[in-house]
């Protein structure tokens, strides 16, 4: 199974092209997906290999308190699988990585938290290409690593055609919205960041030329409250198109800055006024 991993593991690089397509409409139920028949042992061995390529020889301890992954056991749409990472221990988490073991580029995203972050809960949407284990690995402030996992049944998410032309998919690229949930004063504010970007996986076929659309994905996304960083995300092709990220931050009344870049040199920056602290 090592051939699935490719050589781009240790960095968040472009994954290898493997399969075609995901389904929309009738065919939803006909899954005999790749990876469906792997044994527990095979999955564990694959994870060992991936973990080593990302984290080297560092020890990773199991945890059921520092991080928890919530994902649907069976994805309704393999190209948009909602993931919630819960990290309840305030102040202890430095970074979290999400790894989708059997995706062509398994290292889906890494979030490094800054002083304005409240990492208690983080949501994002990913593509899932196979029946796979998903791992969340947190790094605590003292530099230790802890992992949690969840098994997800989905298939074809990375190669799912977007159902529109590339031009249409790229319309408004870089547009952003930031929505704030109502919050009691003095509490962290929950926010939803939406970014218009096709996040082409490199595995989707161009509908007109019948060639693969080159991968074009958000590789860096930084959110700051004033001068203080909330988080920096390093992303890859496993993030679903039009990325949406829910996070929480500690407001100080200063504008929220969002800076995004993609692997083809696209750069976008937006500023948002946070809810008034007196509210």
């Amino acid at each position: 199974m090592t051939h699935r991993i490719g050589k781009t593991l240790s960095t968040l690089g472009l994954g290898v092209v493997l399969a075609t397509g995901a389904v929309s409409g009738p065919l939803v139920g006909m899954a005999q997906a790749a990876g469906a028949s792997d044994t527990e042992h095979e999955r564990a061995a694959r994870w060992q290999e991936i973990a080593k390529s990302i984290f080297g020889d560092r020890q990773i301890a199991q945890t059921d308190s520092l991080v928890k992954i919530d994902a649907p056991v069976r994805a309704l749409d393999a190209a948009l699988v909602p993931i919630t990472l819960t990290m309840p221990k305030d102040g202890q988490i430095k970074a979290v990585s999400l790894i989708i073991d059997d995706n062509p580029a398994p290292y889906a995203a890494k979030f490094e938290f800054g002083p304005a972050a409240d990492p208690a809960e983080l949501k994002l949407r990913v593509r899932v290409n196979n029946y796979t284990d998903m791992h969340a690995v947190v790094e605590t402030q003292d530099g230790k690593l802890y992992e949690a996992k969840q098994f997800v049944k989905a298939s074809g998410g990375c190669s799912a055609p977007m159902g529109m032309s590339d031009e249409e998919a790229m319309k408004g690229m870089g547009d952003m919205r930031l929505k704030f949930a109502e919050t009691a004063p003095g509490k962290p504010v929950e926010a939803t960041l939406m970014v218009r970007h096709p996040n082409f996986s490199g595995m989707q076929m161009n509908q007109v030329t019948r060639e693969y659309t080159p991968a074009r994905y958000i590789d860096k996304l930084t959110v700051s409250a004033g001068d203080r960083t909330v988080f920096t995300m390093t992303g890859d092709i496993s993030i679903a198109s039009n990325p949406v990220i829910n996070f929480a931050f500690k407001p100080d009344g200063k504008p929220i800055q969002v800076a995004a870049s993609d692997n083809q040199g696209g750069r976008w920056q937006h500023s948002f006024n946070p809810p008034s602290p007196t509210n």
Binding site: G21, V23, L27, M30, Q32, M162, M205, Q207
Partner: peptide
């Protein structure tokens, strides 16, 4: 035509599996 060229082969593979 463009919709089929994007999805046709994928659908076909799925159906062949079945």
């Amino acid at each position: 035509t463009e919709a089929l060229s994007a999805r046709g082969e994928f659908y076909r593979k799925r159906l062949i599996d079945l």
